[in-house]
Write a protein that binds this DNA or RNA. Sequence first.
DNA 1: TTTCAAATCGTCTGAAACAGATGATTGGAA
DNA 2: TTCCAATCATCTGTTTCAGACGATTTGAAA
Lengths: 183, 183
Amino acid sequence: MSTVRLSTTSYVVLGMIAMRGPSTSYDLKRAIGHSVGYFWHFPHAQLYSEPKRLEQLGLLEVEEEDDGRRRRTYTITDTGLSALRSWLAEPTDQHYELRDIAEIKLFFNELAEPDDIKRLAQDQIKQHQDRIAEYEQMQERFGHESAISRRMVTLGLGLEMEHAALRFWTSLAERAERGEFEA
Amino acid sequence: MSTVRLSTTSYVVLGMIAMRGPSTSYDLKRAIGHSVGYFWHFPHAQLYSEPKRLEQLGLLEVEEEDDGRRRRTYTITDTGLSALRSWLAEPTDQHYELRDIAEIKLFFNELAEPDDIKRLAQDQIKQHQDRIAEYEQMQERFGHESAISRRMVTLGLGLEMEHAALRFWTSLAERAERGEFEA
DNA sequence: TTTCAAATCGTCTGAAACAGATGATTGGAA
DNA sequence: TTCCAATCATCTGTTTCAGACGATTTGAAA
């Protein structure tokens, strides 16, 4: 077994191919785009270079078209599958990271104009409402199709988080309205 | 005014120096470590290289010790302050990113053993409970000192998010217990 | 049936982010 | 006074990243 350290990107690629079956990089890009991509961004260039690496490590197999687009279709190997499975079985000690520019701006509220805080809060409210609507629509459309309902489980976490953020920014907007961030 | 694109890291550095006053890279590392570092990780090496860049751009000024540690103490310039202020005033269209390895593993639940899901959920419950305790302690200790209470505002968001995650994983653990992730 | 604009698909580049090793300085306990 | 642990700073090689670029394909209008 190799001693190379695989990244989260590696496992997402492995997992996607294991779940979907044989896939091209472009397939991955699209599949990730309407699933894990909602909460963790993977630049599409990675989805071309990473499978190449995984193939060299023997975790994927590749089949190349020899003309036109020259698509490379990747399949997971037994080694790849067992690497993925042991990662899934492994405990995760790392806490999540919430990369939220709005939160950073809010952290520096002392340096901002009170009106900036108000607008920030209002923008966030709108954004989270929109996202909630989007998630609910997904849940409605696909949540009951048992074929993919297990892929919808994380939507529940996404929704909880969105509602939490919405609650926070709503209450913050009220506090700002009350003048809590003046002088 | 320069046309260089500043990153979030840049603004965090500027903001920290603006809020704390003259700071060394090590000061930044520590200050970030017990504030924004809780939700967005900035590798400390960046906090040495980034101020250097900002100094070259004229957004910071530097004063160097000429012996011993050779600490470089950075101060924000007027240009730096106005760059920071206009960033704070600017709307933020980007949605947050939630980099959560546990969520990724859960997404691939179809490929995992039912017991893995149970343990994943239990670990997450523990982790979020601990984090909540940590945040509540911070709130209790510093929330009332008006000198810094405005720097504690984001703690509220952190807590809301932690509670949301805790709710989700708690309910997920029950579903797993009921055998929802078998076969 | 040609044509041409939009959508799809793939690669490349240079810059920034990153983990983690290394090394120097310092304070204070033994 | 020595010596260990904490503090502080830099360096290295790798990975991530945004976004530009270019090639192929589709299909609708001409």
